[in-house]
């Protein structure tokens, strides 16, 4: 089951990025980058480039653009996100109206489709995942520090600007690699929900990541099997399982 392999890789990666995005109030970046990826996919389909690669390129370019806009201080952070989110959706829709005929194909990118995951996709996801994990491993400690207290980190010599750029590029890579599994519209759920769920348990940073990983893996694996046997949408099933776990921890978690 190629979908399962790809799903597990995505399940491991998403919370690792998610914990930094959620704690830095950047949750919406995942959503924005996923819409940008959709524009990338449309461009890819139009020009006959591998759509996931096209999505990857678009997401990376947009992530740098967002960071540039945000640090220019001329545009508020969330307004920068709104510009890119609606802008890229517009690009996608216009391209779709130009070129008829790949609507059905696009649907699988919108919502993900585990059955259409190819061996190529698995390899690509695997390579991207290695890149993300290695880069995170290198920058993990200073990233935690700037997430907690950016100013103090800066004073002690952390290159905050560079780390912010690294984080947003990694977010773009993660979004792109998750597309074949959950689709463009539900990616941010994978990045955000397991982390938000683990945060309800109020543990240390290291333990929070471990819980987020557990919730993510359970949801993705259970979601893939459930969607396979009951013939449901994979992405939707995964997200619903995640939300159920969130609901339980929210109600029964530590106050």
């Amino acid at each position: 089951m190629r979908g399962l392999e790809a799903g597990i890789i995505v399940a491991v990666i998403a919370p690792l990025i998610g914990i930094f995005l959620v704690l830095r109030r950047y949750s919406l970046i995942a959503d924005t980058l996923s819409h940008v990826s959709l524009a990338g996919i449309a461009i890819g389909l139009l020009l006959g480039i591998n759509p996931v690669l096209a999505a990857l390129g678009a997401a990376v370019v947009a992530s740098l653009g967002i960071e540039r806009l945000r640090t220019s201080k001329k545009v508020y952070g969330e307004s920068a996100l709104a510009l890119f989110l609606s802008g890229s959706l517009a690009v996608a829709v216009v391209i779709l109206s130009l070129a008829h005929g790949f609507n059905a194909n696009l649907f699988s990118y919108l919502f993900g489709s585990i059955v259409t995951v190819t061996m190529n996709d698995v390899w690509m996801i695997f390579v991207l995942a290695i890149i993300v994990v290695t880069t995170l491993g290198i920058h993990y400690k200073p990233l935690v520090y700037i997430t907690f207290d950016e100013e103090a980190a800066k004073v002690s010599g952390v290159k905050t600007q560079r780390l912010n750029t690294v984080l947003i590029i990694l977010s773009a890579l993660t979004v792109a690699l998750a597309i074949p599994i959950v689709g463009v519209l539900l990616i941010s759920a994978l990045i955000v929900i397991p982390v938000v769920t683990a945060l309800q348990l109020k543990k240390s940073f290291a333990i929070t990541i471990i819980y987020a990983e557990i919730f993510s893996l359970i949801s993705v694996v259970a979601g893939i099997f459930a969607s396979f046997y009951f013939n449901l949408s994979t992405g939707g099933t995964i997200v619903l399982i995640m939300l159920t776990i969130f609901g339980i921890t929210f109600v029964y978690g530590k106050k």
Binding site: Y145, D149, S204, F205
Partner: peptide, 27 residues
């Protein structure tokens, strides 16, 4: 450096006391 706490600090941040102090070594 000890910054103005109220401005920078998220009380829901998931970090233990020793993790916070260890951050000082990470830079």
């Amino acid at each position: 450096y000890v910054a103005q706490k109220a401005v920078n600090f998220d009380v829901n941040f998931p970090a233990s006391v020793s993790e916070v102090v260890l951050m000082g070594r990470w830079a």
